[in-house]
């Protein structure tokens, strides 16, 4: 029976994969219901997403913002906070990057650095607000981050009127120095795909987050607060400071994600550019088990769904991909607890 317990433990460890498999299976039912062949559709989807250099580049491009927002959610989660505000933080980050890149009188690469920093700082500030409200008044961060999402959208729309080009909903282009190079300039195989240097920034940040959480004094304190706040307090950690800092760092990660679209792709800010990447970031963190390496894999998966979904669009409706994403989230939430319960019961 010990062997059986070991098997169950394996299943629990593999629960993200099982969740994905279950979601694909459930999605297959939908595909069959509209008279298509599920296996064929899935094969097409993943072949397009990974099979060609261009497809891979597109997948990576779509995975990039999810990597940032997934890291943002995961970091906050480790400190015991549920940051539902990544969408808003991403949004203000993108706006700040566009303004800094378009208006700061800085030469060449300095402008790029400034624009990226602006994105991070704006996101950090937007994340710090609910962090401070939580630390100071104990106000629940879920409610406050949701509210701040709405405020971010409205505030940026309003402020945007002053800077948008006439008859458009986007800003003017950022300076050349702030335009992040596309990866196809270094890797010809990716030709034509908009994946750009912010992907590399995201990967570096994943490493930074991992080191921060698991190898530094600060990360230790954040995790202690997340896992047992009253023991952390006993250990001399100021819970309020830790929560505020975690939210600011989380917001910074989300804000930096704005660089992908604004600095690396369109070179301007456009209303609604974030397109739900913040919300999908929650799913990415969940599926990636709040670990940076898991987040990398999960963002890649969701990026593939997003791009592959566009391609299979001719044969199944666009909404299918959204249903599929929602199913993955649903299964990601329930699979692990269900497996754990079963493991306790049967082994």
């Amino acid at each position: 029976m010990s062997d059986r317990r070991a098997q169950w433990q394996w299943l629990v460890a593999l629960s993200p994969l099982i969740a994905v498999a279950a979601a694909l299976a459930a999605g297959a039912v939908f595909i069959a219901a509209i008279g298509e062949k599920p296996l064929e559709i899935y094969a097409l989807l993943f072949r397009e997403a990974f099979g060609t250099g261009y497809g891979l580049g597109q997948t990576l491009f779509r995975a990039t913002p999810l990597l940032f927002t997934g890291l943002a959610v995961a970091l906050a989660f480790r400190a015991g906070l549920f940051n539902v505000g990544v969408e808003g933080q991403l949004y203000v980050g993108g706006f700040a990057a566009a303004l800094a890149g378009a208006y700061l009188p800085l030469p060449g690469p300095l402008l790029g650095v400034a624009a990226v920093l602006a994105a991070g700082l704006a996101g950090a500030a937007w994340g710090a607000i609910p962090g401070a409200l939580k630390a100071r008044f104990g106000a629940h961060e879920v409610i406050n981050t949701i509210m701040l999402n709405f405020i971010a959208f409205s505030l940026v729309s309003w402020a945007g009127r002053a800077v948008f080009l006439p008859a458009t909903v986007h800003t003017r282009d950022v300076g050349l120095g702030a335009q992040l190079p596309r990866l196809d300039t270094f890797v010809p195989a990716l030709r034509g795909a908009p994946v750009n240097v912010s992907l590399l920034l995201g990967l570096v940040l994943a490493l930074v987050v991992a080191l921060l959480l698991f190898r530094t004094r600060l990360g230790y304190e954040l995790r202690a607060v997340g896992q047992n706040a009253s023991a952390a307090e006993y250990g001399g950690v100021s819970i309020g400071h830790a929560q505020m800092l975690a939210m600011a760092l989380s917001g910074a990660l989300a804000g930096l994600g704005g660089s992908n679209f604004v600095l690396g792709y369109k070179h301007y800010f456009e209303l609604g550019f974030s397109g739900g990447a913040g919300f999908i970031g929650i799913a990415v963190a969940l599926l990636g088990r709040n670990h940076p390496s898991g987040v990398i894999v999960a963002s890649l998966f969701f990026g593939a769904l997003a791009y592959g979904g566009l391609v299979v669009n001719q044969r199944v409706p666009r909404e299918l991909v959204e249903v599929l994403m929602a199913l993955v989230i649903l299964f990601a939430i329930c699979t692990r607890p269900l497996l754990e319960r079963a493991a306790r019961r049967w082994a």
């Binding site: 004094r217 230790y220 304190e221 023991a231 006993y234």
Partner: peptide, 18 residues
């Protein structure tokens, strides 16, 4: 107060000394 159950023994041995 005294422990973070989901942290390792090594990590718990530095709680307060971090």
């Amino acid at each position: 107060r005294g422990l973070v159950p989901d942290m390792s023994l090594a990590e718990n041995l530095v709680l307060g000394l971090q």
